[in-house]
């Protein structure tokens, strides 16, 4: 579950005021809004990457407002993937598990599982340079899911993709969500994408959350 209670967050003069919403456990929330409306700022606040000015952030019912990003257990997929240039795809999938001191056998099993889910097997030895947009996003998704987070935040993961890759990653997201029941908050500009994926549709306008509607399609 992702629950924000009267959260105010800002950068410099810009402020998102009194944002409150709830995405139920295992739900898929989609956040829409114009460029510069504060969507990414809000996502960063949930991940713990940006301090909030007031309010409470709860993840899976736990107040994480003052917790570091490492302790929140949120999988984060930024726009453009932000893959680490010096690591192979396999090392990306292993990264969080090594940091969390998983055993080598458990790491191997998890990497095999993720690479099968995401179709990454042929790419495991490759480095990010030269991967296509769709491949990059699949790796970023695998990296974010590797440590089995209960919350997943996606910042416009499909915006830089062509139509074919977009449809492919959309299907991957649907499958992953059905399989893991991870609670998702997904930022997008694309209405079709939002209607296809959203269980809860949120919209930001002029620094406030204006709508919270369950889309009719689901």
């Amino acid at each position: 579950m992702i629950a924000l209670e009267q959260v105010t967050v800002g950068i410099g003069g810009f402020e998102l005021r009194d944002v409150s919403f709830t995405i139920p456990d295992g739900g898929y929330g989609v956040l829409m809004g114009r460029t510069g409306s504060g969507k990414t700022t809000l996502l960063e606040a949930i991940c713990g990457l940006r301090p909030i000015r007031s309010g409470i952030v709860r993840l899976q019912g736990r107040d994480v407002t003052r917790e570091s990003p490492a302790k929140r257990g949120v999988g984060f997929v930024p726009q453009e993937g932000a893959l680490f240039g010096h690591l192979t795809v396999r090392e990306h999938l292993e990264f969080a598990l090594v940091v969390r001191h998983w055993s080598p056998a458990a790491i191997r099993t998890r990497v095999e599982e993720l690479s099968a889910w995401l179709g990454l097997n042929p790419l495991l030895h490759r480095k990010p340079a030269g991967l296509s947009g769709g491949e990059t996003q699949r790796v970023a998704l695998g990296r974010a899911l590797s440590f089995q987070p209960q919350v997943l935040c996606l910042d416009e993961p499909l915006s830089a993709l062509d139509d074919e890759s977009r449809a492919e990653i959309c299907s991957v997201l649907e499958t992953i969500h059905q399989r893991t029941r991870v609670t998702v908050l997904h930022i997008t500009h694309n209405r079709t994408e939002a209607e296809r994926l959203a269980g809860t549709l949120l919209r930001i306008h002029d620094g406030t959350l204006q709508l919270q509607v369950p889309p009719a399609s689901r």
């Binding site: 960063e44 570091s68 490492a70 929140r72 984060f76 930024p78 932000a82």
Partner: peptide
């Protein structure tokens, strides 16, 4: 180097 890389590492469990 984009600060995003560092931020992603933080969410993955790094100090």
């Amino acid at each position: 180097i984009s600060p995003r890389h560092e931020q992603v590492a933080l969410t993955l469990g790094c100090t």
